[in-house]
Nucleic acid binder design. Structure first.
Lengths: 187, 187
DNA sequence: TATATTTGCGGGTAAACACTCACTTATGCA
DNA sequence: TGCATAAGTGAGTGTTTACCCGCAAATATA
């Protein structure tokens, strides 16, 4: 990503690492300052509160997830391919950026309550794919929001159980199975 | 439930209400004492720590969810009926005991990390249903753990989005749609 | 070079936290 | 009735917390 290394970015990076490991609440400003190798005061030069910092960190990671996903959608534009790319993108992101993924999902569902719930771009993108597929008669008519929730839930929960070691299957097979399951629902 | 009203139960009830509303971390022992109308010291007569209290509260609610689910499974014993009862049971529990449900799910996935992850009976029960169905050739062969994760994720995420008002459909239809989707995956 | 603005520091602070403890009151039992 | 134990109290404890502020150094602007 070749970013400019400013103190501000140092803070964000340190906060990111800690939030991912311990969660937002359990991470202290002192922890962050220590890790970023700056003083606590400096944090408040750049962010008006710990909450604002958390918000920024969350958005940066969501953006990353989002870019990653879009990369997987570039190839082809028929709904079935889009969906399969989407699913693969989610799994790959979760695999390659385990902590980032967990943070985004966990923060979205619990830690950042009201904040930016509407900003969950990956979810909105899924809805769009489904609607496109319905318009083109690839997928049967159904409430796209409901279907998207189902699919998103399938993905997150599957990843969750894989990570916690309760599903002993390898990635390619899980991706394949999940995609097949989604298509069965939608067709 | 007609429970005996002891101070201990008062504490559990107060803690439950607060944990459900604000989460475990954000609830202080002072909050609990105030709400239960007892002193903070009393909490420590009955529980050796806040963590232990949280554990008890979690288990009580999980037990409730569990009993509720079993009630929905009593009728019939062919896998398809069992599954449909299971799904209905989840949705009904989430509807009738919204906060309890959220607490159990949230606590399971984030707050109680290592504790009692193995104790997630509803998940284990789902796996059993799927295995039974496979044995009886009602459902096709597949990794039951993976399928259970998918289905459980479908349910939790759907409920999550319904509660947050992002899916505007009524319960009977959602239950029906979700059941149909599950069967499509499994058949 | 003189001056204004930004960036960084780190000790300090008040509030909040989970938990303790010496003590009082209630309960069970012979 | 007398006594042992359990239940309940609330002021206190030592930490930890997010955040502040006076000051210094760096950087930009003239």
């Amino acid at each position: 990503m070749a970013q400019v290394r400013t103190k501000k970015q140092d803070i964000v990076n340190a906060a990111l690492a800690l939030f991912m490991k311990k969660g937002i609440k359990a991470t202290t400003t002192r922890d962050i300052a220590l890790r970023a190798d700056i003083s606590e005061g400096t944090i408040y030069r750049h962010f008006k509160s710990k909450a604002e910092l958390a918000q920024v960190v969350f958005e940066q990671n969501l953006e990353l997830f989002w870019k990653h996903l879009r990369h997987y959608l570039h190839r082809g534009d028929d709904p079935e391919q889009l969906l399969s790319g989407y699913i693969r993108g989610c799994f790959e992101f979760a695999r390659r950026h385990q902590r980032r993924y967990s943070f985004v999902i966990a923060a979205h569902q619990t830690e950042l309550k009201k904040l930016s719930r509407q900003k969950m771009k990956p979810m909105r993108m899924l809805i769009k794919i489904l609607m496109l597929g319905q318009k083109q008669k690839f997928f049967r008519e159904a409430n796209a929001h409901l279907a998207a929730a189902m699919i998103f839930g399938m993905l997150t929960q599957t990843i969750f159980y894989m990570k916690s070691g309760q599903i002993a299957v390898n990635y390619p097979i899980v991706i394949q199975e999940t995609t097949a399951a989604c298509l069965r629902i939608l067709k």
